[in-house]
C-alpha cells in the first residue's frame, strides 16, 4: 500500500491528539461540580478529549488505507493560500473601508485566482456584485453593513 500516505496520517493523528490534549489541559481549570456525584463543566470536554486522543491513536496505528481525497497540486495550493490570505485581508479591511469599497476587490481577486482573465468580467462583475449586496442587505432588508 502507498507508503507516502503514512506521514499524512501521522500528521492528522498528531493534530487530533494535540486538540485532545489541549482540551484536557484547559478542562483542568474548570470549576468543580456544584452537586456531588453530578458531572461538572469539565466532564464532557474531558470525555471528548479522551475520545479524540483514542481516535488519534487508532488513526496513527491502523494499516494504511487508500488515498483519502484528491491531492492539491503546487499551483492549487498557492491559489488556495492566496485566496485565504485575500479573504483574510478583506475581513481586516472591511470595518475600515466599508463593504462598498472592500467587496469588489475581494471578488475580483478571487476570480483572478480562480483563472478568470477577462478584464471586462474582472471589473464589471465585482462592481455589480458590490452594488447588489448593498441593495439587497442595506436598502431592501435594512441590515446595516460596515
Amino acid at each position: 500500500m502507498s507508503e507516502f500516505l503514512r506521514p499524512a496520517a501521522f500528521v492528522e493523528a498528531g493534530l487530533v491528539a494535540l486538540l485532545g490534549a489541549g482540551m484536557l489541559l484547559d478542562a483542568r481549570g474548570y470549576p468543580a461540580p456544584l452537586i456531588e456525584g453530578v458531572p461538572g463543566p469539565a466532564f464532557f470536554p474531558g470525555l471528548v478529549a479522551f475520545l479524540l486522543i483514542a481516535c488519534a491513536a487508532v488513526l496513527a496505528l491502523r494499516p494504511p488505507r487508500g488515498p483519502a481525497g484528491a491531492a492539491i497540486d503546487g499551483g492549487g495550493a498557492l491559489r488556495l493560500g492566496g485566496a485565504v490570505l485575500w479573504v483574510a485581508g478583506f475581513l481586516a479591511v472591511l470595518p475600515l473601508a466599508g463593504h462598498l469599497v472592500a467587496l469588489p476587490p475581494l471578488v475580483c481577486g478571487l476570480m483572478w485566482l480562480s483563472g478568470e482573465r477577462s478584464p471586462w468580467i474582472l471589473s464589471a462583475v465585482p462592481l455589480a456584485f458590490g452594488a447588489f449586496v448593498h441593495l439587497l442587505f442595506v436598502v431592501a432588508l435594512g441590515v446595516p453593513l460596515p
Binding site: V87, F90, L91, H99, L103, L106, V107, L110, M111, S114, G115, E116, I121, V125, F129, V133, F137, V143, L145, P146
Partner: peptide
C-alpha cells in the same frame, strides 16, 4: 463559469456570516 460563481459565493457567505 465556476470561476465567476464561486467568488460571489464567498462574498455572500462572508457578508451573511456577519449579518
Amino acid at each position: 463559469r465556476p470561476r465567476i460563481l464561486m467568488p460571489l459565493v464567498v462574498g455572500v457567505s462572508l457578508i451573511g456570516a456577519f449579518v
